Structures are given as C-alpha cells and as structure tokens.
Amino acid sequence: MTDKYPGLSSYTDRHGKVRWRYRTKERDVSLPAPNQPGFKDAYQAAVEGRKVPKAPVVQMPGAALPGTFGAAFQRLKISVKWLALDEASKRKNTRLIEEFLELRVVTDHPLVWRNVPVKNLRRIHVEELLGRFIATPHKAKHLLVGIRKLVYVALRQDWIEIDPTAAVEWRPAYAGWKAWSREAMAQFEKRWQLGTAARTCYGLALWLGNRRADVAGLRWDQRVTRRVFIDGVERHFDGFDIVQAKNKGRTGGKRLFVPITPMLSEILDAADRRGETVLVNGYGDPFSAKSLTGMMAHWCKLAGLPKGLTLHGLRKSLGVYLAEAEASTRQLMDVLGHDDIDHAELYSREASQVRLAVQGMDRVVRLVTRKPMLGEPIGEPRGEPPYKA
C-alpha cells in the first residue's frame, strides 16, 4: 500500500484504533482509510499541500431539531385538530407558520425561528415579531394565532410549562366588510338583469346572507318548506336549508333555515336551472367558491361601480338591513349564522348608532321645543300594520 501511495502510513492511537496519515518532513496530514470513500482525493490534496474542502451540510426539507418550532410544526400537522381543518384553512395556516419559521431571530444573524427551541421564546420576542408587521396589523394578528398553535403543541409535549404568548394582546381595529349602498345596489341591478349569473349570485349573497362557499354550493334540492308557529298561528315558509361551509370539516358546519323573501323569489324564478346548483356559469356548471371573488369584482367593474364592493359586502348589507329593521341581535345571528354576539354586531353597529342617535336627539327636541320628531317620514311607516276589523 505504501509503495502505491508514497508517504502513506498507519498507526494505532491510544484507543487502539488504526489511523492513516500522509507524512513527510514538511507536513503530517490525517487521511481516511484507503478503503473509505474520498481517500484518493484526500491523499492527492495532501501530496499537493492543499486542503480538501469539506462537503456542505445540506438541511433536508422538513428536518427539525427536537424541541424547536420546526419540530412543533411537524407535530401540529399530524394532530387531530389540524387534520379536521378544511384544505383552504390548512393552506392559509401553513403559509403563515412557514413565514414565521423563516423569519430571522435577529435581522443581522442567519438563525431563524425554525431552529429555535420553543422553551427559549419570551413575551418580548413575540411583541417584537408583531411589531415588524405594524403596517399590516391583521397579518400580525393571524401570525400570532399561528405562533400560538405551535406553542400549544409544545405545551402538550411538555417541552414548556408556561405559555409565553398568554399575556400578549393584539387586537387591531376592525370595521368589517364594506356594505353596499342603496345607489350601488340599484346600479348593479340595472346593469345585470334577472336570469343572469351576476344577478343570481348577487341575490343569493344579499337576500340569504351567504358566504361565497355557500353561494357557490347552494343546490335546488335544499329548497324546503317549513311550518313555523308565530303568535300561536301556524304559518308555512319557503326557504333554504343550509349547512354553512365554514368550519364544516371541524365541527360539521352550522345548519340554518333562511326563508326566501319576495326579493329573492323573483331572482330564483328567473335563474338558470340547468344544473344541480342554483348558481351556474354559461355552460351550466357550478362556479368554484374561489372564483366568485374575482367574478364579482368583474361584474361590478362592468356595472361601472368603484372598487371595494365585494360579495361579502352584500352579506354585511343584509346585516345592515336587519339592523335598520330593528331586528334583535339574536335574530341577526340566526339569519347570518354567527355564533358570537361581538362578530354579529359588526354588521349592525353603524346602522344602530345612526338610529339610536336620531332617537336620542328626537327626545331632546321634544323636551326643549315640544315640536314633532326630527326628519320627514319617507314611504310607508315601518312596524306592524294597524289592525283592521
């Protein structure tokens, strides 16, 4: 072996292991054994007096050190709660969490949060992270939700004992989606006649208060008649039996019966009935839920309406109608399918404020001037019609 590789020799170290080296008067270089990969390259480099470059360390996709945020995300993705999410929610959460994992802990150092042990996270770190997104406060709020999911995994695995995000509050101001004005509705209806997909989509969102997934998936066979007792009198109502798509994979979705109003009835009578779904495209096929956002923007543009009027804004418009009609918060929740009062009141806060302010100032006018109430009535009075014998 030494004849083939001049300068090569072996020796036994203090642990009894045979070692190989290239040895001359000028240098003494350790080498791998002749039967090991890379021996020839290392020997040639030793003869020439140059260093053998070390192989780069490549991190495999999805690799994570134990106890780190990267490991927490791996465990999160196999948890029951994660598997119960719908695909859209999984994609959204994955995108936000991956963005967090790739953020640098310190801007001028390569260490990213993926490789940081969860036990090293402190409240000040979370607040500094959220501060980076001060220009986009709602994104910061969703990022905090993603971090808390990882922290929850760490608590379940006993990697930590205390949640460092528990005292962190991040509640950006939220006014909700922009409701459509009466003028915008009239302009849209003038452009899109009954029977068009645009008008049908508009009517379902406005008069059922549906989200886009429920608008896209609403079927004709969901139209039913229900018996309802009101003030001791049995009445029959035509409506749709809807299971909301939101949280359907996790909780089964909320089931609602929403009655069909005369405004919606004329839209349904003129609708294209070639498919199973109420809303179909020019080929008689259903729209995808995701496509309706862009389609509504396109229809609004063709109607000459400004940007910012959305499909979800029609849902809010129904909430405003309910508020202006003095429907109770509970009635509003049962029409729109909300579970919490705070969320439901986002749809009616502005209308309630206007009405209550006018009613309050009207009392002042009556007290001070003894004159009739402010404003002039328009159209028929609201409320129960007078009893006629």
Rank of each mutant, 00 (worst) to 15 (best):
D3S: 14
Y5S: 01
G7F: 03
L8A: 03
S10P: 00
D13N: 10
R14P: 01
H15I: 00
V18I: 10
V18M: 06
R21F: 06
T24M: 04
S30A: 11
S30M: 07
L31Y: 07
P34K: 04
Q36D: 13
Q36C: 11
P37T: 02
F39C: 00
D41Y: 08
Q44F: 07
A45C: 04
G49Y: 13
A55M: 11
V57C: 08
V58D: 09
G62D: 03
A63W: 14
L65K: 15
L65F: 12
L65P: 06
T68N: 08
F73D: 10
R75H: 15
K77P: 04
I78D: 14
A84D: 15
A88E: 15
F100P: 02
F100D: 04
L103D: 13
T107I: 14
T107L: 15
P110N: 06
W113C: 03
E128F: 10
F133T: 00
P137T: 02
H138N: 09
H138M: 09
H138F: 12
H138W: 12
L143E: 06
L150R: 06
V151T: 04
V151E: 08
V151F: 10
Y152P: 02
V153C: 06
L155E: 10
L155T: 03
R156Q: 15
W159N: 04
I160R: 08
I162V: 13
A166G: 07
V168K: 09
V168S: 08
E169W: 13
P172M: 06
P172D: 05
A173H: 13
A173L: 11
A173Y: 12
A175W: 10
W180C: 00
R182W: 02
E183M: 00
A184W: 00
K190C: 08
W192V: 00
L194S: 09
G195C: 06
G195W: 09
G195F: 09
T196R: 08
A197N: 06
R199P: 01
R199L: 02
R199D: 03
Y202S: 02
L206D: 01
G209L: 01
G217W: 03
W220C: 03
W220L: 02
I230G: 09
I242N: 05
A245H: 14
N247H: 11
T251E: 12
G253W: 09
G253K: 07
K254Y: 11
R255N: 09
V258L: 06
I260R: 11
T261A: 13
P262R: 07
M263W: 14
R273K: 14
E276L: 07
N281G: 09
S291Q: 09
M296G: 03
A297V: 03
W299N: 02
L302N: 12
P306Y: 00
G308W: 05
G313W: 06
L314R: 04
R315D: 05
E324I: 00
A327G: 07
L332A: 12
M333D: 08
D334N: 14
G337R: 03
D342S: 15
D342K: 15
Y347E: 01
E350M: 12
A351R: 07
L356G: 09
V358N: 12
M361R: 15
V364K: 15
V364Q: 14
R366T: 12
L367A: 15
L367N: 14
K371I: 01
E376M: 14
G379T: 08
P385H: 13
